[in-house]
Nucleic acid binder design. Structure first.
Lengths: 189, 189
DNA sequence: AGACTATCCGGAGGAAGTCTCCGCTTGGTG
DNA sequence: CACCAAGCGGAGACTTCCTCCGGATAGTCT
């Protein structure tokens, strides 16, 4: 989107990073409607520069989001290495809840922002799907989770719970436990 | 908010209704960011009039939403009268999914809009909680649903599923069935 | 009917934000 | 060191939001 084969010039890369950092601050501070010109100002850059790197608000939101997703994917690896399947899965899902709690109203905006940017959306899906897929398979191999559940489905459910319990975050764990109860393998058969 | 004891003048009521109607159209057509001045124009009214009735976008969104909620609450009564508990509950939850599907990206905007308007939020909560509460109690009385599930919790879960499955609406029913499996009374104990 | 007044309307216009365009600057290279 | 493609910045056109207040009108009283 910004890199047509060639390498970016040093100042360009610098500005890009500054912009993402400023945007992250501004979005968490003023919500997803933070003024873009103000973000440019914070980054010590003209509006033109901002719009060259990120043609619209969505792509900027997407750039910020990518960093977060990467961190979550790494956490999945670490958890898988350090804990037994069920606990690793539970903890990672808990991380998702915590992340959404921290970002408050941002998650909803991110969803609709990403809907407009197919490439970033695909990337996020693939990355998260990979991270969760690994955790889920291990849990399914031990017979803890119904084998017909797809990673994408579980992912959507966690996000659903996270968004739904924004007004009352304390409820999130209980709602998630309901969902997980529904996904557990039945002993009976 | 608009009715301090006295009756509204006839032209005021007329304009108010026109505005809500125009807003409903505009929101479903252009999403929740539809231009307010344009809505006023559609309603054949000046911007000033719009802003007197609805001081901000949220309250207008809320007014549109109220009508929908009322319809859903009525549907609950009808379903309860016409079907056995489990089917009535299932159908009503299905209606929620369908509603969200129809409104697409609007639901997320409505959520955050309502967060800013305590009164309307309370009203919606109470109304929906009442409608679902009745259906849920009947299902619980027959031992179909875990007795410790609160209406508010189930409501949030349905909304969660609805929002989460927006990008792929066909999945909604399957996700909802996962959730309901988790809420069913266990035969074993 | 005619007049009076509280209520409501309309649209001009200031403020804020979005985004583009283009002349100037600068990093990288031979 | 000189060149030039890549990148920068900010003026400004345009859009949208929202307020303010002079003028219109519905409901009421005589």
């Amino acid at each position: 989107m910004d890199n047509p084969g060639r390498q970016m010039r040093a100042d360009a890369r610098r500005n890009r990073e500054r912009l993402v950092a400023a945007a992250r601050e501004a979005f968490t501070e003023h919500g997803p409607d933070a003024a873009l010109d103000e973000i440019a100002r914070r980054a010590g850059v003209g509006p033109g520069t901002l719009y060259r790197h990120f043609p619209n608000r969505e792509s900027l939101l997407g750039a910020v989001y990518r960093g977060d997703i990467e961190a979550l994917a790494e956490a999945a690896e670490e958890l898988a290495a350090a804990h037994p399947p069920e606990e690793a899965l539970g903890r990672w899902l808990g991380l998702q809840l915590e992340y959404a709690r921290q970002k408050r109203g941002l998650t909803a905006a991110l969803k609709s922002a990403l809907a407009a940017d197919g490439e970033t959306l695909d990337w996020c899906r693939t990355t998260l799907r990979g991270a969760l897929g690994m955790l889920l398979e291990r849990a399914q191999a031990e017979g803890l989770i119904r084998p017909d559940v797809e990673p994408t489905e579980l992912l959507r459910l966690v996000h659903a719970v996270a968004v739904a319990s924004e007004p009352e975050p304390g409820q999130a764990e209980r709602l998630l436990s309901f969902v997980l109860d529904g996904l557990r393998s039945r002993d009976g058969r």
